[in-house]
Design a binder for these strands. Structure first.
Length: 239
DNA sequence: GCAAAATGTCAAG
DNA sequence: TTGACCTTTTGCA
């Protein structure tokens, strides 16, 4: 492992040449364990991995972390977090995270316990990583549309039935995203035969569709900033 | 050539 | 609620 651009050079030296035990993801956090030294990566808004086989390309731009194993390499740029942590420090991060729909047997009830006693809008709660972890701006907008839930509905006004339906759908939607590497929310997931390619401009109901007609009722999609993030919804379907 | 935007988080005021 | 942080890509002059 190396850090050609330099900002992570000390951390990279700690694990360079060592055997990787296991990589796990919790919410948006990625952990790569080299014994007691754990590389923690959070991509944030701009982070990106690139990868390939053969000789790695000459370092270009701000290259934070590079892994090279035999014929395979990965490069990391733009991440908000890239650091070596102790198991204790990892525990502190994990303790703050709500249930992750992508973990085995995720516990949606724990998230609802928080939601059911909050006055905050459901659209904000879905993005709160201490309530549930892993959902970002795309999934929160799309899951609310799929369930026709008004984004400003206070958490405590969401019935448990509606929450269970939302959570069940979310788990399947996110697992499908993990499997395919794409976020496609406009296709019914229970019909596996409808597996034709969905063009990227047709992949979402509301996300980044401000002013375009709702796919269901033709009302122009609305957009407003909520906690500094763009929130998209259909004012008619999600009244 | 430059501004704006992008699947995010934290901390200051 | 706002600004800072991180990098690359896109769209408009």
């Amino acid at each position: 492992m190396s850090s050609p651009q330099g900002t992570f050079a000390a951390g990279a030296a700690l694990v360079d040449g060592r055997v990787l035990d296991v990589v796990t993801a919790h919410g948006k956090h990625l952990f790569a364990a080299f014994g007691e030294q754990i590389v923690h990566v959070h991509l944030g808004l701009f982070g990106k991995y690139t990868a390939g086989t053969g000789d790695p390309p000459a370092p270009r731009g701000a290259l934070r972390m590079r892994w090279v194993v035999d014929d395979y390499w990965t490069d990391l740029r733009g991440a908000t977090a890239c650091e070596v942590l102790t198991p204790l420090e990892v525990g502190v991060i994990l303790a703050r995270l709500g249930p992750d729909p992508l973990r085995p047997r995720p516990n949606g009830r724990a998230a609802y316990a928080r939601i059911a006693r909050s006055r905050a809008p459901i659209a904000g709660l879905l993005m709160d990583q201490t309530v549930l972890s892993g959902v970002g701006n795309v999934y929160r907008a799309e899951i609310l549309f799929r369930h026709r839930i008004a984004p400003y509905l206070p958490g405590r006004e969401l019935t448990e039935d509606r929450w269970v339906a939302l959570w069940t759908d979310l788990v399947r939607l996110m697992r499908a995203g993990l499997r395919t590497g794409r976020i496609v929310t406009t296709r019914p997931l229970d019909r596996s035969r409808q597996s034709g390619y969905v063009r990227s401009e047709d992949a979402h109901y509301v996300y980044r569709r401000t002013g375009l007609p709702c796919r269901v009722c033709r009302t122009p999609i609305a957009m407003k900033l909520l906690q500094a993030r763009k929130l998209y919804w259909c004012p008619t379907c999600q009244a």
